[in-house]
Amino acid sequence: MIEIKLVVNDKPYTLEVEPSERLIDALRNRLGLLGTKEGCGEGECGACTVIMDGKTVNSCLVLAAQANGSVITSIEGVGNRRSPHPVQKAFVEVGAVQCGFCTPGMVLSAKNLLDKNSKPSNEEIGIAMSGNLCRCTGYDKILRAVKIAAEEGKE
C-alpha cells in the first residue's frame, strides 16, 4: 500500500492506496464520490473526467499514487441545487442532458474551459469538449449550453 495526500473538492485527505489503483477507484470506492463515471476504462469516453491541478484528466488513466500532492475537483465539488454553476444551469435549461452518464464529465470539461477562458470561441469550446463522448448524440445542445454559460459568466 502507498500513502498519498491529496485535496479533493477543497477537503484534504490522506489515503492508503494499492500501487495499481486508479484515481477513479480511489474517488469512487474510498471517498464514495460516485458522480465520477466509468464508461470505457481506457481514456476514450471522458465520463470519468475530473480536474486535477487545473487540467482535465481521465481519472481511469491516472494512478491514485500519481495524484499524490494534487488538488482535485470532481462533480461533487461543483455547484448544488441552491446555487448551481452556470454550466450546470445552462445544461438543464438548454436540454443538454439525456441519459446523464456523460454529464458529470461534460460539466467538468466545460467548467475548466470557462475558468481559464471566459470568452471562448465556438472552436475553442469544441476543442475543450472533444475528450467527452455523448452516445445519445446531444452534442449540439451541449455546445450551445457551454456557449450560454460563457455568456452568462461575462455579465
Binding site: 464520490l33 460516485l34 458522480g35 465520477t36 470532481s74 462533480i75 461533487e76 461543483v78 455547484g79 448544488n80 441545487r81 448551481p84 454550466v87 450546470q88 445544461f91 438543464v92 435549461e93 436540454g95 442532458v97 446523464g100 454529464t103 458529470p104 460539466v107
Partner: peptide
C-alpha cells in the same frame, strides 16, 4: 425542463 436533469448535472 426535465426534472431528472438536475440530479445528473450534480452527479
Amino acid at each position: 425542463v426535465r426534472e431528472d436533469a438536475w440530479g445528473k448535472v450534480f452527479g
